[in-house]
């Protein structure tokens, strides 16, 4: 018998006491899915929680996004930045005009080449206020996963209409990306560890600085 057949046989023998074969009828789940978490102001809560992770955030009207991105790159001390193909051309132009080296991932950069770039600029998919979480589904304006991982600084543009209250609404919105087979990355602040004497250290392997530009 193959391992697969044997394990399945063991499971069936172990659950002979389960008479009802329809899982949904056998164990009802009382939870009501996709409910918003009541918040006084979704964007204010999002901002507070981003700051709570010791990441930085600036709020700007759409007209000011390009300037805010340039200012964010300067604030994190980036001399070079990798830009995914789908990032707004006006932001890229502003970054170039500011004298910051723009690196394209076309053809794809090697790990080592990517490791030499200071920062990355991306858009985002959905964000959650209550947890201060930004979700990427790695479309053209966010790039493949390595781009938001290897460089040490991440400037991320979040649009106000993509911010929802909490995890349930966000999971609901991201279902479409999952069905398209897209990978998802949820980011809550910068990378962190509390492994030594439980003292929180911001920045281990992922980008050590996260700068959020919230476009209202």
């Amino acid at each position: 018998m193959s391992a697969r057949e044997e394990i399945l046989a063991r499971i069936r023998a172990a659950t002979v006491d389960v008479v009802e074969k329809d899982p949904v009828t056998d164990v009802p789940v009382d939870w009501v899915y996709d409910q918003p978490t009541p918040l006084t102001d979704v964007l204010d809560t999002f901002e507070e929680n981003i700051l709570d992770y010791r990441a930085r955030i600036v709020r700007t009207p759409a007209s000011g996004t390009a300037d805010a991105v340039v200012a964010a790159l300067a604030a994190v001390g980036a001399g070079s930045v990798v830009v995914p193909g789908g990032v707004d051309a006006t932001w890229v132009a502003a970054v170039e005009a500011a004298g910051i080296e723009v690196v394209r991932d076309d053809p794809p950069l090697s790990h080592d080449a990517l490791n030499r770039v200071d920062a990355v600029i991306t858009g985002s998919c959905v964000s959650m206020a209550e947890t201060g979480t930004i979700c990427l589904d790695h479309r053209d304006d966010q790039g493949r996963r390595a781009l938001t991982l290897v460089p040490d600084r991440h400037v991320c543009v979040v649009t106000a209409d993509s911010v929802v209250s909490d995890v349930p609404e966000a999971v609901h919105r991201m279902k479409a990306s999952i069905l398209e087979g897209r990978p998802l990355t949820w980011i809550s602040g910068g990378s962190a560890t509390s492994d030594i004497e439980l003292q929180r250290v911001e920045g281990v392997h992922g980008p050590r600085q996260l700068f959020v530009v919230l476009q209202e």
Binding site: Y53, T131, V167, T185
Partner: peptide, 18 residues
Amino acid sequence: ERMNPYTSIWTGVTPGDG
């Protein structure tokens, strides 16, 4: 924490990514 710093979710192979 309200949320851990990183959560990765992947559904099989993504061409050109990972």
